[in-house]
Simulated assay, not measured.
Amino acid sequence: MNIKKNIAILFLLSVSTLFSSQNLYASEQAVAIDYLHGEQELSGIRLAYRPYQTQVTEFEWLGDLDVYWEVSLNFWEFGKENKHETNYALALSPVFSKQFDTLYGKYPLKWEFGIGVSLITDTRFAGKNVGSHYQFEDRLGVIMEFGEQLKSSVAIRYMHYSNGGLNDHNPGLDFLNVSYARRL
């Protein structure tokens, strides 16, 4: 069985497991589409699903913190002159966010961070040997919620994929990301 089939199977199992949760309510779900721009001619699209939109947790020293899980499927392309490469990644990440301000008195501004795991199809991509099919997905960004009942959001974030030193080859892949998400 090849790696692309493994990713497809893992994605379907992850989504079906998340959907089967007894605590899943339609109002707590969200979907997102992201555009990723990386170094040189590296770009991509990221489709994400959040089975639990937010769970507010109060930490005495930090205040209210929103926590949610996100499963995503990434399509990356690298094109340099006559050479074109494609890579796919499946990721699962816990994401933490906290409101730090309000724009115009009604649009919450939040920072976010998260470290998850991902599985990529090719270990040689964008002129690099990334060392492993298994990568960590790190993110740091800013989110603005808007729209009816604040169901929509846009985010700008930095995302980094690397194997975290689990392999001798670990150059990592860096992306700037623009995202639109909508709670269902």
Rank of each mutant, 00 (worst) to 15 (best):
K110L: 09
S118Q: 12
Q53S: 10
E148G: 03
H133K: 08
D64Y: 08
E148L: 07
K80P: 00
Y104W: 11
Q40F: 08
T86L: 03
G79F: 00
F100K: 08
A30I: 00
V67H: 10
W111R: 10
Y161R: 12
Q29L: 06
I115Q: 08
V130K: 07
P108R: 13
F96H: 04
Q135Y: 10
T57E: 06
N177I: 01
A8P: 02
H169L: 05
Y68Q: 01
K106F: 11
E28L: 05
W61D: 02
V56C: 01
K98F: 01
L173M: 11
S179M: 03
R182P: 01
L10V: 06
L47F: 03
V67Q: 11
Q53A: 11
E145L: 07
S27W: 06
W61F: 04
R139I: 07
P171V: 04
H133W: 08
T123L: 05
I156Y: 15
N170Y: 07
V31E: 03
G105Y: 11
M144Y: 09
N74G: 03
Y158Q: 13
S118Y: 08
N2V: 02
F136H: 11
V31G: 12
E77C: 02
I7N: 13
E28Q: 14
N82R: 13
F113W: 15
E81W: 08
T123I: 14
G131C: 07
Q135R: 09
L73F: 01
V31T: 14
G79H: 02
Y180M: 13
Q22M: 02
T54G: 10
H133N: 15
F11C: 05
F19W: 06
T57R: 04
F96P: 00
M159W: 06
Y134S: 09
T54H: 15
A26T: 08
A181I: 00
I156T: 15
F19Q: 11
L166H: 08
T17K: 03
V154C: 12
K128D: 09
E70V: 01
S21K: 09
R124V: 05
S27P: 01
N163H: 12
V15H: 11
D66Y: 06
W61R: 01
P108G: 12
A91W: 03
Y107D: 12
F11K: 09
S179A: 09
M159Q: 15
T17C: 12
E77T: 10
E85Y: 04
Y180R: 13
E39T: 02
W61S: 04
N129W: 13
K4Y: 13
Y158M: 13
F146R: 12
A89T: 03
D64C: 02
N23Q: 06
V95G: 00
N2P: 05
